[in-house]
Write a protein that binds this DNA or RNA. Structure first.
Lengths: 142, 142
DNA sequence: CTTTCACTTATTGTACACAATTAAATTTAC
DNA sequence: GTAAATTTAATTGTGTACAATAAGTGAAAG
């Protein structure tokens, strides 16, 4: 192992992580275009399909995103009619994001997305599970 | 497995990939700040430390990036004096990117970065190898 | 009370990331 | 030989992503 070998792209762990995350999000695009959602909007809706409502801070913790990213995403989803944004009465610092009826309906269409994506990933069940666990182990420590 | 279970964030493979890529790039930031490089600039320099020169298209293939991303990154690196950009004589469509002496010197400082990052990743050698191979297997198919 | 402190969201500025388009140069087909 | 097709970068427009800052609110200390 030469002095500079660790600086080669091929010896980096971060690079395939960075590149495959990008490529897989790109793979989502045609499926998400059908729903008129971007990937960031999609994962935001995922949380709200499950939880119905949540304040911005908690949403950011779920998604590993800060308010600088979420604010424009949430405004966009609001303008599409999928969510509402409302200050909480008892503590006006909190902004509560809630899913609308129209947002709920989108869920029916969205069911297709994970199925279609599954077919794009070249890993078997065991490999997927292994990858999933390694990623979460790393993520928890970051 | 309910009808909607695949739409839960916790059942997604893409989400931990997306989130951990983001978090690991963020982890690089303080180390890269010392070199006055962003992550994208850093991986670009990595290719040039190894190859010395390359045209934009090939660079994009190595990095999985298109010219819309690379053009401003390369102009920034040029303004910092780490690279030069020059049209090829025999085919003026090609823009050839070359590392400068100052860019070469930066490599000495950069050696520290992978060492420092290695300490941030909570995986042992075997797990890292396994993650690396799964990511590349997926990436090749995307 | 009131002033300080902590908390939460929004805004601003910088830097990607990519689709779509444009522009310029070269290659090819005829 | 020239028109059409292809190749390569750059540009434009939209949408993240995050650090730093600002603004507003509520809680706590005195």
């Amino acid at each position: 192992m030469g002095k500079y070998d660790l600086l080669k792209l091929e010896n980096q762990l971060c690079f395939p992580l960075y590149a495959s995350a990008k490529e897989i999000v790109r793979k989502y695009k045609p499926f998400l275009d059908d729903l008129d959602l971007t990937y960031t909007q999609y994962i935001t809706m995922m949380v709200l399909w499950e939880e119905k409502e949540m304040n911005v801070k908690t949403l950011g913790e779920w998604l590993y995103l800060d308010s600088g990213t979420l604010t424009p995403v949430l405004k966009k989803l609001e303008s599409k009619g999928y969510i509402t944004r409302k200050r909480q009465k008892k503590d006006e610092r909190n902004l509560c994001v809630s899913i609308t009826e129209k947002g709920e309906q989108l869920k029916e269409q969205a069911i297709e997305v994970p199925l279609k994506m599954g077919a794009c990933i070249n890993l078997n069940a065991e490999e997927s599970k292994s990858l999933y666990e390694l990623l979460y182990k790393m993520l928890r420590a970051l």
